[in-house]
Design a protein around this nucleic acid. Structure first.
Lengths: 128, 128
DNA sequence: CGGCATCCTAGCCGATACTG
DNA sequence: CAGTATCGGCTAGGATGCCG
């Protein structure tokens, strides 16, 4: 049984689909995709990552990385040095997630103009 | 200048990338993708859509559809009958968004097992 | 039937301070 | 350097009730 686009669509119709929605929400949160996409170019240490993502708080980076690690998207490696060094790297699955994120990002980037125009038109009609 | 995956990655590194994050958050919210994917198979009326999505409240369906309409993803057509009928259909751009959603859905579906396993292992280590 | 207004809650997320 | 702990705001989203 192959899992193609059409078969998923059928599932979406018939089922509760709550599981997919749940995971979609996770991926769609504020920082998951930015972090994963940033890690795509190579492993980074905590504060390197913090600087690279630019805007993320230390707290949220920690949380996001924890969740990603739990989900098997990133691998956490502690080097027992002084001071301690912790490296984060994408797993194979994490890398495929990053690909998905980039595709989504590309789609957004490609449609930004159209969306903005549409919003302007819509808002203009509301303001009448 | 072509907008490929690599060029976007570069943008992500250098820029604030706040705009992309903003739109990602929108797409990644609880109902946008489910609604768009459901509409992919054809136009639906409000309550048909409500039943098809299964789990969405009337309020959230209204909000989601409004936003999607504002962003130019769905077209809203009012038939002046009694009782009133309102039909929602995907625009071309909305249809391409649905494709993105399906790809993401397929990715999730393909990796569900692995994610669950990873979580189990992770949680077991924490409980030690 | 389709949709707006209101109230309310959960939890995401940020800021700050502290630890090993 | 790499976290943990705590507090608090904001808002997505659910429940309910009313309108055309």
């Amino acid at each position: 049984m192959d899992m193609t686009v059409s078969s998923l669509a059928a599932t979406d119709r018939g089922h509760k689909c709550g599981v997919l929605a749940e995971h979609l929400a996770r991926i769609g949160d504020r920082w998951t995709l930015p972090v994963v996409v940033t890690l795509r170019e190579g492993p980074l240490r905590f504060n390197q990552l913090r600087r690279a993502v630019a805007g993320i708080s230390q707290q949220m980076l920690t949380r996001t990385l924890r969740t990603l690690e739990r989900d098997g998207m990133v691998a956490r490696t502690v080097h027992p040095t002084v001071p301690p060094q912790v490296e984060y790297a994408l797993t194979v699955m994490g890398n495929s997630l990053a690909d998905q994120g980039l595709q989504l990002g590309n789609w957004i980037h490609a449609n930004l103009q159209a969306i903005d125009r549409s919003r302007t038109v819509f808002d203009a009609r509301e303001t009448d």
